Amino acid sequence: MSKNILIVDDDKEIVNLIDISVKNEGFTTYLASNGKEALQLMNSYTIHLIILDIMMPEMDGLEFCQKVRLESSIPILMLSAKVEDWDKITGLMTGADDYMTKPFNALELIVRVKALIRRTYYLNQQVYEKKEIIRLGSLEINKSKYIASFNNVKMKLTSKEFEILFLLASHKGQIFSSEDIFQMIWKEKYYETNNTVMVHISNLREKLEKTMGYKCIHTVWGVGYKIEG
């Protein structure tokens, strides 16, 4: 089944470039020039992935991302003309799953889009086949439905946060380093200066503790992270 991609950017040339690139790969596209238009499209169509610019009029990408995360774990690839690390961290903390700096290579964009689609909708249905549902006390993590809930209350996690939670919960008590998590979830080479895992763990831990009322993910200083039920 073709996946629907929502492209949100006020730069028409960028939108046209992305639109043509993803359509050539068989995806269906919907276009918006700001966050307000994008929310309207999301209310009308089923969207499987969002390519989102940060700097836009009326409603910027960060505000839009926050609103999406209130209701959905749909994968979000964020774009920005800024190159500072803080902008990337802010984007990831807001709920983005991946981040690219403009100008970008169209081929790399497609590779990242396909990777997000594969991990969210295909790969995640195959990994840990014998562990589709994990229960740690009142915490239930359903891999087939891509839902994590506590006392039957669904938690609003990004796709990467869900994957990290499922990975740690699948190996209760086992310590995973940042490098382990990055390579298993992002499937890319890890660099020591990469703080992506730290940001996602921080966001995930905050959401879990807010919902559950106690600490679930523990840091083993100098080693990595583990989950305890």
Rank of each mutant, 00 (worst) to 15 (best):
I185M: 11
E161S: 01
R135D: 01
T196P: 04
I147Y: 01
Y121S: 03
I185Y: 12
Q174P: 05
Q126K: 15
G222M: 10
A148K: 04
Y99C: 01
E108T: 15
R112H: 04
R119A: 04
I217H: 08
I147L: 12
V197M: 10
G224D: 13
I133H: 05
V199A: 07
E188K: 15
V220F: 09
T196V: 11
F104D: 02
D180F: 03
T94F: 09
L157C: 07
F166S: 13
K145E: 15
V111W: 09
K187T: 05
L109P: 08
V220L: 11
I117A: 03
A115P: 00
S170N: 13
T158K: 06
E132C: 06
V127G: 03
L168V: 09
N142V: 02
G222R: 10
N151A: 07
G222P: 09
I175W: 07
Y214V: 04
K215F: 07
G222E: 09
G222S: 08
I201L: 10
Y128L: 12
Q174D: 14
N142Q: 05
A169K: 10
Y99N: 00
N195E: 14
K145I: 02
T94C: 12
E132H: 09
G137L: 03
H218Q: 08
G95P: 04
A148N: 05
R119V: 01
T158N: 05
M155E: 00
V127E: 15
K210D: 11
E179S: 14
G95D: 04
L116R: 03
S170Q: 06
R112A: 00
F104M: 05
L167K: 08
K210G: 00
K131C: 08
A96K: 05
E108R: 11
S202H: 15
S138I: 01
K156T: 03
E140W: 02
